[in-house]
């Protein structure tokens, strides 16, 4: 992907996104700018609007208002360019369990226009990145939950995206695999200058993030390095600050 994205310019600009389902306001004027080389955690309880935000960022849904720019490409007007710059790990598993790991990755490579030698190299490199070389010719069905997730992450990164979106990627994993995956992605973020948005409701998972965005009832309640958020809202750790933030209803707002 284009390495020309300047370090200073944000890779993703989300501007005043709103989305309602009937009377429920899932997103209420969310604005964020995400930078390259930054691991941003999108922290919010269930129903905060994280998944809605991801579905809009990945072009599956269209916002009622607001816009998204990815490397300067407007998602609504140039969806293919914006999508080409993104690697996505969905909340819901999305491997074809009947195919082998290699077939799954080759399929994805094809969707992104990688064929032949380029595809083979990308597959080998992606598998190596997550230590999954041995799984290559195994059927996805035979892999453990943690390894399936790693394959999905390898798949998201094999097209060398500038922006990586992960929607609760550790769901259903044991604590060890969870920590393993978080640390791995954090390292890749630094090494490759990726712009990472990692959605979760598990506070311990994102204590090492560069930046935490707290989303609650469709609104950004706070945004900053974990230490700053803790300092602002008291308590000993991020967990306390998170509970303080989301436990207290902002005055005058109906759900």
């Amino acid at each position: 992907m284009p390495p020309t994205a300047s370090q200073a310019a944000p890779a993703v600009v989300i501007d005043a996104l709103s989305k309602s389902y009937g009377k429920v306001r899932a997103l209420d004027g969310v604005s964020l700018a995400l930078s390259p080389g930054q691991f941003t955690a999108l922290l919010g309880p269930n129903g905060a609007g994280k998944s809605t935000l991801f579905q809009i960022l990945t072009g599956l849904f269209v916002a009622d208002s607001g816009s998204v720019q990815v490397l300067g490409h407007d998602l609504a007007r140039q969806p293919t360019r914006a999508l080409a710059a993104m690697g996505i790990v969905f909340q819901q598993p999305s491997l074809d369990l009947d195919l082998t790991v290699e077939q799954n990755l080759a399929y994805h490579a094809g969707l992104h226009g990688l064929a032949g030698r380029r595809a083979r190299d990308a597959i080998a490199e992606a598998l190596a990145l997550f230590g999954q070389e041995g799984a290559r010719s195994q059927r996805a069905r035979t892999l453990s939950g943690g390894n399936r997730r790693k394959i999905e992450m390898a798949r998201a990164l094999m097209t060398e995206p500038a922006v990586v979106l992960l929607d609760e990627p550790t769901q259903g994993l044991d604590p060890a695999s969870r920590r393993d995956i978080v640390e791995h992605v954090a390292r890749l973020t630094r090494e490759r200058g990726l712009c990472v948005l990692w959605a979760t409701h598990i506070v311990s998972e994102v204590e090492g993030a560069d930046r935490v965005v707290v989303l609650h009832k469709g609104r950004v309640l706070d945004d900053g390095p974990p230490a700053d958020i803790v300092a602002r809202h008291g308590g000993a750790a991020l967990e306390d600050a998170f509970l303080a933030l989301t436990g207290r209803e902002p005055a005058g707002r109906a759900a």
Binding site: G59, T80, R81, A84, F90, L111
Partner: peptide, 14 residues
């Protein structure tokens, strides 16, 4: 149902 459609619809293709 198995999530493969998401992958397909988020491919950088019209």
């Amino acid at each position: 149902e198995v999530g493969a459609l998401r992958l397909l619809l988020t491919a950088p293709l019209p």
